[in-house]
Design a protein around this nucleic acid. Structure first.
Lengths: 237, 237
DNA sequence: ACCTGAACACCGTTCAAGT
DNA sequence: ACCTGAACACCGTTCAAGT
């Protein structure tokens, strides 16, 4: 009886009519495990001990592991508080972008999972409709509406995904020391622009940082990126 | 002798002075496996049979699996042909963006891997320097240079990552049918904008598609997104 | 240094069996 | 329908041992 515990695990349906496990409970527990110890820690057996049941019981409610990961991603997306409809589309996109970033930063370990899989609308199409409505109010229509929508979704989510990409290894400090050292000793001839701006770039720019956005958020650069997005949409309108 | 094969596998160092395996060969073979059968197929044992050696030999040259995946990502990034230096920074960013997309589309199965991990500059900082030089020539300097660099990298890579995100399952046609059906029957009251533009959106927009960009590239939307990026940078300069 | 051969601890998934 | 208990096929990694 390795997996069973206090609940008095015994084969067969639980005595009462209500089931001990629900899909929702499994998914929320899974999110909890990922938040605390990362995706690598999310195994069927870990979930089972956490829930006080056997591995197969997890599978019974949440399906395959891929389905579980999708459910966890959707759970995070459900945490999005969409800004209400407004006539000011530029301000809507701005607050939407900030809100997406807030929701993803609340679960940084989930971001890489979302980044790797096609995210499906959460049941109803509330998220998509909200974005489309804001852009349509801004004058985008037809194919231009589609393009603007894809620009907003792709840029906002994509940028934050890049910011929150996983660090190689918590224990492996070698490569971070190596990168730090390589940056301070970068060749002025082969990389003059980088060498000339190394102090403002070190650990604050993509591909030039050794820490993820979870431990070193790129706040100012994000605000600038949002300005670029909104300004660019305005210009392309 | 399950893993060994024709090469006449026998314990000990190979007869000649040159080693049978090299790190480069392992990495290139790994990329080949990923290209053909996806990341799931990339296992130590698969690589071993492919190379005609034992699993531990793979580990000896390429290190841990995470390190191997990083090496595979870097291999793809090495495929980038950077545009030469020019005074026209807007055109440089444009061709750079198209080139990134081309390189990633050449290895769509690798994109989700890159999206999940912090990408490190490929040895020297050639990629970063090229972007920084182009932007500096455009008049960006100091913190603004950092922000513009992060906008370019985050937007371009992030957008293409989103485009190339993995489809849930090659065999699972249920959910794609479900999404397709849900879209055609979307409520005009709860999602008027989506309902009114469903034919231009279906399978052509993020969160509203059932196919990844590998089988359904979003060409027009990408060109628009690049225009937004360049136009936004111009406005923020 | 380079690789074998075998082992170790773990994983996702399946499935008959119970209630 | 819900869950147990055990099994199956597989995985990444380690390691003594050989040359």
């Amino acid at each position: 009886v390795a997996g069973g515990q206090g609940r008095g695990a015994r084969p067969g349906r639980p005595a009462a009519g209500e089931p001990a496990l629900t899909r929702d409970l499994v998914v929320r527990t899974a999110l909890d495990v990922v938040d605390r110890d990362g995706v690598r820690a999310l195994t069927t057996r870990r979930l089972a001990t956490e829930l006080g049941c056997y591995p197969a019981a997890v599978q019974h409610h949440a399906g395959t592991k891929d389905e579980l990961l999708t459910a966890v991603s959707d759970e995070v997306l459900d945490g999005l508080r969409l800004p209400g409809p407004t006539s000011d589309w530029k301000n809507w996109v701005r607050t939407f972008a900030r809100e997406v970033r807030r929701a993803l930063h609340a679960h940084p370990n989930v971001a890489p999972v979302m980044a790797a899989q096609v995210s499906v609308a959460t049941g109803d199409f509330g998220l998509s409709e909200a974005i489309l409505a804001a852009l349509a109010a801004g004058g985008f229509e037809g194919e231009r509406l589609v393009d603007a929508y894809n620009a907003v979704v792709g840029f906002v989510f994509g940028w934050v995904f890049a910011e929150l990409a996983a660090e190689p290894d918590p224990s492996d400090t070698d490569w971070s020391d190596h990168l730090r050292h390589a940056l301070t000793h970068v060749s002025t001839e082969r990389a003059p622009t980088l060498a000339g701006n190394v102090d403002v770039l070190s650990n604050k720019a993509f591909m030039l940082r050794w820490q993820s956005g979870r431990s070193r958020p790129l706040d100012r650069s994000f605000d600038f990126a949002v300005d670029v997005l909104v300004g660019g949409l305005e210009a392309a309108r």
